[in-house]
Simulated assay, not measured.
Amino acid sequence: NLGEMIARENIEKGHSMGIEQGQKLERITLIKNMTESLQCSMQRAMDVLKLTAGERKDVEEYFKS
């Protein structure tokens, strides 16, 4: 039972991490598309999407690299 419980917890953690990564990639794609199609700044695109401070940090870190 303990082994099954640990395995289940790890699966749930991995699943939520996968969802989180997918959401980050989706935000980055949206920002990139907006800046190119609408010819607006990254900051303006993030304002329009009403990103949180943490989400903004993720996007900014991606575009810095």
Score class of each variant (00 low, 15 high):
Ile19Gly: 06
Ile28Asp: 03
Tyr62Lys: 05
Ala45Gln: 03
Tyr62His: 08
Lys24Arg: 08
Thr29Met: 12
Ala7Ser: 06
Glu12Trp: 04
Ser16Trp: 05
Ser65Asp: 09
Arg44Gly: 00
Ala53Thr: 09
Gly22Ile: 08
Gln23Lys: 10
Ala53Cys: 07
Tyr62Phe: 12
Glu26Asp: 15
Ser41Ile: 05
His15Cys: 01
Leu38Lys: 15
Ser41Gln: 05
Glu9Met: 15
Ile28Cys: 02
Glu4Val: 06
Leu51Phe: 14
Glu12Ala: 11
Gly3Ser: 12
Arg27Tyr: 09
Met17Arg: 13
Ser65Asn: 14
Lys57Asp: 11
Lys57Pro: 07
Gly22His: 12
Lys57Tyr: 09
Lys13Gln: 14
Lys64Asp: 07
Thr29Ile: 07
Arg56Ile: 02
Leu49Lys: 01
Glu9Pro: 02
Met42Trp: 02
Ser16Asp: 03
Arg56Asn: 01
Leu51His: 05
Gln23Glu: 10
Glu4Tyr: 08
Gln23Met: 14
Lys24Cys: 05
Ala7Asn: 06
Glu9Cys: 13
Lys13Val: 14
Arg56Gly: 00
Leu38Met: 14
Arg44Tyr: 04
Thr29Tyr: 08
Ser16Ile: 04
Arg8Asn: 07
Ala7Asp: 09
Met17His: 10
Ser37Leu: 11
Leu49Gln: 04
Ile6Asp: 05
Lys13Gly: 01
Gly3Glu: 15
Met17Pro: 06
Met5Asn: 10
Glu26His: 15
Val59Gln: 01
Ile11His: 14
Leu38His: 15
Ile6Leu: 11
Leu51Thr: 06
Val48Gly: 03
Gln21Met: 11
Met17Cys: 04
Gln21Ser: 07
Asn1Gln: 12
Ile31Ser: 03
Asn33Ser: 12
Leu38Asn: 14
Ala45His: 01
His15Asn: 10
Glu61Asn: 14
Met5Ala: 13
Gly54Ile: 09
Met5Phe: 13
Met42His: 04
Val48Asn: 13
Gln39Ser: 11
Ala45Cys: 01
Gln21Ala: 13
Lys64His: 12
Leu38Cys: 14
Gly14Ala: 09
Phe63Asn: 06
Lys64Ile: 05
Arg8Leu: 05
Ala45Ile: 01
Met5Tyr: 07
Met42Cys: 03
Glu55Pro: 08
Arg8Tyr: 04
Asn1Trp: 07
Gly54Thr: 10
Ile19Ala: 07
Lys24Thr: 06
Thr35Lys: 00
Ser37Asn: 15
Leu30Gln: 13
Gly54Asp: 09
Val48Cys: 05
Ser37Phe: 05
Thr52Lys: 08
Met46Ser: 04
Glu4Asp: 06
Glu20Val: 11
